[in-house]
């Protein structure tokens, strides 16, 4: 099989990959079938015939693309490039799969791309962020096929906000903070992100509708404890001891001893009965207290620790209060791309 024949087979495979099933126009269907059958002259003739008829935008793009394929297969490169240019102008996002399409056809397509000014594959990603805080923004990407002044805008009714304006070619990545010229966040509503490319007399526009929704920023919850830190008990029970009994013994003994030492010998001995009786009462008290669980004592270190913890907590909550006050004045923007309803020219 000759080289040209292989090229035609590959092109036919690509055309069948595009599919003729959804094509409404009968002439175009026949053109696609002719191309599938490797009847290139007939495919070109029928495609041209179909283009002279009333076709929808998608079918027009298919017809031009089929012509591009057919001309490439018949080595009419200039005609192929022209046909692809028409297809690209009608449907700028049209892509060829390099894995399925022959390099010759792909190069014709790329050549056509370089010769037209279009904005392709305009994509706006979903995003949620707090307006005016940090690096939050809406990612916008598109490809400009040749050097041009590119102006990107967000439009809704009378509102038009310039997102970016620069000379660009190739892949362009933008991050739009979704703010008005005065710095306020964009009001809720449906917007059209429009990319205008202009180079001399050539202009092209692509658009993507998006919905912007304003919402409240989540506030931080109050802390009732410091994470990872627990309050310590402010009282502690000292270990049980015989100290009360020893104290009672010591002071009772001192009372009896004092009585014995101070009593006047001229007045006779004895007289220590009351001292003994009260000392015995004191001893009983001391004994009972030695058996009893000691009373709780303030734990100074723990009290100081808890005080520090409370101070820290109060400071943290004051910070949270300030942060929440700021957040209540902020707006959370949610941007969602909507399905396209046309929008290229």
């Amino acid at each position: 099989m000759s080289r040209i024949r292989w090229l035609v087979v590959l092109g036919a495979v690509a055309a069948s990959a595009l599919g003729a099933q959804n094509v409404q126009n009968a002439t175009l269907r026949q053109a696609l079938a002719a191309y599938d059958n490797l009847d290139i002259p007939r495919a070109i003739s029928l495609a041209r015939q179909a283009l002279s008829q009333r076709l929808g935008g998608d079918e027009q793009a298919r017809a031009w693309e089929l012509l591009g394929f057919a001309y490439s297969s018949s080595d009419s490169l200039l005609k192929a490039v022209d046909a692809f240019k028409q297809a690209i102008l009608i449907d700028p996002d049209r892509q060829l799969d390099p894995a399925k399409i022959s390099p010759k056809i792909t190069s014709s397509f790329l050549l056509a791309l370089a010769q037209v000014l279009v904005v392709r594959q305009l994509q706006v990603d979903s995003a949620g962020f707090v307006a005016g805080v940090g690096q939050g923004g809406v990612p916008i990407r598109f490809t400009v096929t040749s050097p041009a002044r590119v102006r990107t805008r967000a439009v809704s009714g009378a509102t038009s906000v310039v997102i970016d304006s620069s000379i660009a070619t190739g892949q362009v990545n933008l991050r739009w903070p979704a703010r008005l010229a005065n710095g306020d966040p964009m009001p809720s509503g449906n917007y059209l992100i429009i990319v205008d490319a202009a180079a001399g007399q050539n202009t092209f526009s692509a658009s993507q509708p998006v919905r912007i929704t304003q919402g409240q920023v989540d506030t931080l919850p109050w802390l009732d404890k410091m994470p990872g830190y627990d309050y310590l008990p402010e009282t502690e029970y000292p270990p049980q001891s015989g100290r009360p009994l020893a104290q009672a013994l010591m002071y009772g003994g001192a009372a009896i001893g004092g009585t014995v030492v101070l009593r006047n010998n001229d007045l006779g001995s004895g007289g220590t009965g009351p001292a003994l009786a009260v000392s015995a009462g004191a001893l009983i008290s001391g004994f009972l207290m030695s058996l009893k669980k000691p009373s709780a004592q303030p734990a100074r270190a723990n009290i100081l620790y808890n005080r520090l913890l409370r101070d820290q907590l109060a400071r943290r909550n004051a910070d949270i209060a300030r942060e929440n006050q700021t957040r209540r004045q902020q707006v959370r923007l949610t941007v969602v791309p909507l399905p396209k309803t046309g929008g290229t020219r």
Binding site: T259, A275, S279, A282
Partner: peptide, 22 residues
């Protein structure tokens, strides 16, 4: 000289008391 003891409720509302004075 004196020695006294009191024993009872911790809040002091009711106590048994003993007092010695010499």
């Amino acid at each position: 000289l004196g020695l006294a003891f009191s024993l009872g409720r911790a809040d002091g509302r009711l106590r048994v008391t003993g007092d010695y004075e010499f």
